[in-house]
């Protein structure tokens, strides 16, 4: 069985935020919620300065602390590694928010599902927001509905620079492991010991 993960090539990445917006429209997330997003930073001092771009998303950790913290089992890990939430079991206690060190859990607060406008939901929001329930917690699903049909996540297919590679992180001959080996890939804050499955390749 494959274990799904992602490799993000920071040399290719241009910080365009296509991933952020593809995720937004694929998932129909409410205002202010971004499962995928890009952290931008300046490093150095003028003139030896540059901007760096770090696309982040849920790491679908093998030892997901959010799953462990969840009192009802609403947050669970699929056999293929994708960390999911069963909306029906979620009681909105937000233990997952506290447990996740990467800020990848998002609480659907009261009033958040009124849409981006001030006058009701758009036809798009009226359909997309059916997936969400006030008082529950949501997260990146690695586009599980797409993956289950043999497609790749929305953020991956849209990336103009091909910076995102999706696949089986455990296949020793697979593309992901080869990239991580060749380019000495790393994960974010491994000291948290969550065993993240999103790897980064340096610029």
């Amino acid at each position: 069985m494959a274990r799904y993960g992602m490799v993000i090539d920071l040399k290719r990445c241009i910080g365009c935020n296509s991933c952020t917006l593809a995720c937004k429209q694929e998932n129909g997330t409410p205002e202010g919620v971004h499962f995928a997003r890009v952290v931008t930073r300046e490093v150095g001092t003028y003139p030896a300065t540059k901007r760096t771009f770090l696309p982040v998303l849920c790491n679908h950790c093998s030892d997901a602390p959010c799953a462990e913290a969840c009192p009802t089992g609403a947050t669970y890990i699929r056999a293929d590694g994708i960390v999911m939430v069963d909306k029906g079991k979620c009681i909105g206690c937000r233990a997952c928010n506290v447990a996740c060190p990467y800020m990848n859990r998002h609480f659907v607060a009261k009033g958040l599902l009124t849409g981006y406008g001030t006058d009701g939901l758009t036809p798009y929001e009226a359909i997309k927001f059916l997936d969400f329930e006030e008082g529950t917690n949501i997260k990146c699903t690695l586009c599980a509905p797409r993956v289950d049909q043999g497609l790749e996540p929305a953020c991956v297919i849209t990336c103009p620079t091909d910076a995102r590679v999706f696949g089986d992180v455990e296949d020793p001959n697979g593309k992901l492991q080869r990239l991580v080996k060749d380019r000495k890939g790393w994960t974010l804050s491994p000291e948290y010991n969550t065993k993240p499955n999103v790897w980064y390749l340096d610029e």
Binding site: C16, S18, A22, Q25, P123, A154, I157, T158, P160
Partner: peptide, 24 residues
């Protein structure tokens, strides 16, 4: 109801990719 816009992979102009504005 329009629910998703993706780049058309058959179009060699953008090779299935879209910028953030296109995704919006």
């Amino acid at each position: 109801v329009a629910l998703k816009i993706e780049g058309d992979p058959s179009n060699p102009d953008n090779l299935g990719k879209l910028c953030p504005k296109g995704n919006a």
